[in-house]
């Protein structure tokens, strides 16, 4: 998802007997769906894991502006330009909400940004894929935001209050993202042959990367157990992936596009669609920094930040001067 392969700060899961009294009380609250708030006591590992997860989530929103931003200046109509710009702007807003949530744990945004820029924190693998034709913009909204929403809806129930509240706000705003994407895809799929070709191309390229967003199989995902117990993570990777596939296949069929995976087949017995595994070697390559756009994406973010330093400093210096002048006048 937007937070993938989050390493829980604690390996294995702590049993009740091994918990301190404080930690037992803490775990009871979580088990009773009582939110943990910033000033409440919490295990250090819970705090550290949350910061990692919210930070990566925030970074994903902000880096996620880039592939879609790539088409703002080429949007084909004034209305599409406005919709896309509003959507990419929302991603910036979501990054801001999530950084704010992380800041309640005492980690500043500047610090998180520094860790991202130094390559010590990651963002979702999906944003390391390029947007190559206009239908990619539809497909990103439909598939990528669609996949994200599956996870984020579940995360509204996460145990940490500020994270949960940020997710509630984000989900409210996101509901237009997937719909505008699908709407754009409909125009393409039902449009001219060239437009339909773009739509199919976008679906074929983005399908497996979207599947990878949910992270590795539960069986290979060694760190989720404690995060699930803490309700930092609410549903497992495979559960969410299946949910996404089940809801998306009929949408592909409605568009009249070819399925992007020959392995997709309804399984009567399971009551779910079967589908092929994405190429997990490719996934690990992207995570390690070797995706098609990793270097460019990070360079863009670092450049924006570094080129903006004088602006942030300038405005801060002016605010200090103004405050000093006010004090002097009193």
């Amino acid at each position: 998802m937007y937070a993938q392969l989050i390493k829980t700060a604690r390996s294995g899961i702590t049993s009740r007997e091994d918990m301190s009294e404080q930690e037992r009380e803490f775990q009871d609250k979580i088990d009773n769906d009582i939110k943990i708030e910033p000033r409440d006591w919490m295990p250090d590992d819970y705090r550290a894991t949350l910061i990692r997860q919210m930070g990566q989530h925030a970074h994903s929103e902000v880096v996620g502006q880039l592939p879609e931003g790539n088409w703002i200046t080429r949007a084909p109509t004034l209305e599409r330009k406005a919709i896309l710009l509003a959507k990419v702007q929302d991603e910036a807003g979501h990054g801001l909400y999530l950084y704010s949530a992380a800041e309640t744990l005492g980690e500043t945004r500047d610090e998180l940004v520094r860790l991202l820029h130094e390559g010590r924190m990651k963002y979702s693998s999906i944003f390391n894929y390029p947007t190559l034709n206009w239908a990619d913009i539809g497909a990103v909204g439909w598939l990528v935001d669609g996949a994200a929403i599956v996870n984020q809806v579940a995360l509204q129930r996460t145990s940490y209050g500020p994270y949960s509240r940020a997710m509630i706000r984000i989900c409210k705003e996101e509901s237009f993202h997937a719909r505008q994407g699908y709407h754009a895809m409909m125009k393409m799929a039902f449009g001219s042959p060239a437009q339909k070709k773009m739509a199919q191309d976008a679906l074929n390229r983005l399908w497996f990367p979207a599947m990878m967003m949910f992270g590795p199989h539960d069986s290979d995902s060694t760190h989720s157990e404690q995060s699930m117990a803490w309700k930092i993570k609410v549903k497992s990777n495979d559960e969410l992936r299946q949910q996404f596939v089940d809801q998306t296949i009929p949408q592909i069929e409605y568009l009249g596009l070819d399925l992007p995976d020959e392995g997709i087949k309804w399984n009567e017995e399971r009551g779910h669609y079967d589908f092929s595994d994405p190429d997990w070697d490719e996934f690990m390559d992207v995570i390690r920094g070797n995706g098609p756009c990793n270097v460019d994406r990070l360079n863009d973010r670092v450049a924006a930040w570094d080129n903006g330093q004088w602006v942030r400093d300038g405005l801060m210096a002016h605010a200090r001067k103004k405050a000093a002048a006010k004090v002097a006048a009193e």
Binding site: L96, Y97, S100, E103, R109, A166, R169, L315, M316, H318, A319, K322, A323
Partner: peptide, 11 residues
């Protein structure tokens, strides 16, 4: 509703 960063109250 949330928080944000700004150099001063007006901003």
């Amino acid at each position: 509703v949330g928080s944000l960063h700004a150099p001063d109250a007006e901003m």
